[in-house]
Amino acid sequence: MAANHQVNASWRALRRLVLGLILVVLLALFVLWRIDNPRVERLRMAIVDRFVPNMEWVLAPVTRFSRIVSDYQSYTLIYERNQELRQELQRMKGWQEAALQLEQTNAQLRALNNVQLSPGLRFVTGEVITDSGSPFSQSGLLNVGRLDGILDGQATVDGLGLVGRISGVAEQTSRIVFLTDVSSQVPAIIRPIGSRAIVHGDNSIAPRLQFVESIEDILPGMRVVTSGDGGVFPADILIGQVVFDNDGKLRVALAADFETLEFVRILRNSPLDKIDGVGGLVGIDTPEITVESPVE
């Protein structure tokens, strides 16, 4: 009985020690995350890379089931949808006509100009396998990674508009930070007036437009595209349209459909030629002339 008691006591002491150790380790991890964020984030991506693909057998049936349910819900709306689509088609026919005319003029002008277009962007298509699952970050996990040539900072689009940028790459998975994330800031141009702005996510479906040039000229419905400033994103990718919110602030209604995001394209923009330093003066190179003129 006494021996048993002693064993119990030492067991309890050991347990307390382990508890203390765990608490210290966890606190240290948090502090490390705060101080040396990139390294801990790499550790996190390694954990996610190992863990999440193994979870697909759990995720797959539930995901499939929920998609079936949402598909079924969309069937019930099919009549209204049909009407809407018909009206939209009418409107689109007008646009098609306009587009055709524009295309013709464009082709003519280009032929006149002999324009060099930049080589087309190459892309990889990936599937969004998981959500970030937390309100702390608006992001998703892709099933393509470093092995597929994904690099940090590459732009992702959903066929129509910009979705976000790659942030965190593991061997077979990578993470997109959506435009709606608080940490997402994208330099943009508002067409057709060409004023520059920053599209800044704030955890709502429509990111804010900040630092807008000539703000008084901007009207709702103007298109917002990436400007390519800073060299992170290629230029001229559609982001969305300008809208005003209730407080009169400028926001962007995103072109990408975040409700039904499934496949995304990751643009592998070939790095642009860098222009280093300032060029020399164009004109007469005075020192050389002074040296060479006596020889003549």
Binding site: V62, S66, D131, Q138, G140, E259
Partner: peptide
């Protein structure tokens, strides 16, 4: 795993 389900990405 359940919170990770890709059911929609609207914030």
């Amino acid at each position: 795993a359940i919170p990770l389900l890709p059911l929609g990405f609207s914030p």
